[in-house]
Design a protein around this nucleic acid. Structure first.
Lengths: 210, 210
DNA sequence: CTTTTTCTGTTGCAAAAACAACAAATTATG
DNA sequence: CATAATTTGTTGTTTTTGCAACAGAAAAAG
């Protein structure tokens, strides 16, 4: 999520300015947080890569969202009574800011920089998230594996301003992100290559159409 | 989307308070708006029911979102370069407030009520939308038609605080909302009845499990 | 540097979902 | 209120997707 919002500045402002914000470091594969209703946690990923993951009763794993540097996440964005547990897992070493969202309303008494900046830029920040979620819904509502793959590739291509780009996922994770079976996806990737839609070597993809 | 945000109050405050807000009325099946990049339209549905709809190249129709009284929509929430046209269609007679989002930042010179209330409550308003979108993603990532139906029914049941509830859609539209084939959905609904999961008469559903 | 683990790529087969087509019921409309 | 249009309900067939299982490649761990 690339926001107009200047997170670099934001983090600098926060340091030593609000003692209610916590900064923590996580190793690869560690669980950063588990979504619990009504705690209203609000997190900013300062460094690294992480996924919001759901495991359902059939053992299916779904990558609900993928987060990279400067993305925000946490229960504030997910006030749904869901049956399945939602976990945020670090894909690599991560640094994360933690905050309880209610504090943004019941403003910090010393009206610190953190709150000042956050309350100004919050709408913008959340709107970016909305945009991301809408993009995700657009992908998930595509009716075939082929359309999901092409839709996702087109999006990455647009975002990178290039026909060639790197997948931010392993292929296994890509399948869990698009909510499809991995072997069926591999089959479709092969067909897409044979039909001249894409070139692929490792996780570098090139679009050949249009 | 039922928000803490008091829209009734909000609308009262707006009337005669900001001349940059427009109120329009639409008949059933009229197009309320078409999403155009960078115009940043922001809309509030004061009365009625409407759908955000996408038609893809294969002729598939998808109901991207369903809006009822007090929901917000518009391009502000959809700043994605999408290939397909997105339309908001009135399902019944609708009343809608229109506004250009940028004006919220470059504040109204006369600092009218509209802006005052909007800038205070905007984060809350958008967060509700995020929650809605997350729920939608949870449904769409379910792996079978059965799980999608049961997931949606459970959600409606929770929202209505009752095992019995009315579908806000025709069955045809429900299929477009869950992004599945209508006849396959009908078959699955029949099986759900036969297997004792639900009772159904018209668009009134009763959950029989747990 | 060797071993273990995870990821990629492939395939045959089973299951699920989409497609297509139509009759009956319901709902809009002149 | 009669007719047109839409929605519901059903089913046979085809296509797509998922499942299972495995070998080789690559990456991580010791």
């Amino acid at each position: 999520m690339n926001v107009n919002f200047d997170i670099e500045k934001f983090i600098k402002n926060f340091e030593n300015s609000c003692h209610r914000v916590q900064k923590k470091t996580f190793a690869k594969n560690e669980v950063i947080t588990s979504y619990i209703e009504k705690r209203n946690q609000f997190c900013i990923l300062i460094e690294g890569n992480a996924d919001l993951v759901r495991y359902d009763l059939n053992g299916n794993r779904t990558i609900v969202e993928h987060f990279s540097k400067n993305d925000v996440f946490g229960e504030v964005f997910y006030r749904v009574t869901t049956n399945n547990e939602l976990l945020v897992e670090a894909r690599e070493k991560c640094e994360v800011l933690f905050y309880i969202y209610d504090d943004i309303h019941t403003k910090c008494k010393n009206s610190c920089k953190f709150h000042q900046v956050l309350s100004e830029d919050l709408p913008e920040l959340i709107l970016s998230k909305v945009t991301n979620l809408n993009m995700r819904i657009e992908l998930l509502t595509k009716r075939s594996i082929r359309d999901k793959l092409l839709g996702y590739f087109t999006m990455l291509s647009t975002r990178n301003l290039s026909k060639t780009f790197l997948l931010p996922f392993s292929l296994t994770d890509l399948a869990d992100f698009l909510s499809i079976d991995r072997s069926a996806m591999m089959r479709e990737l092969k067909l897409l290559r044979e039909d001249g839609f894409i070139e692929k070597s490792g996780n570098r993809i090139t679009l050949l159409y249009k």
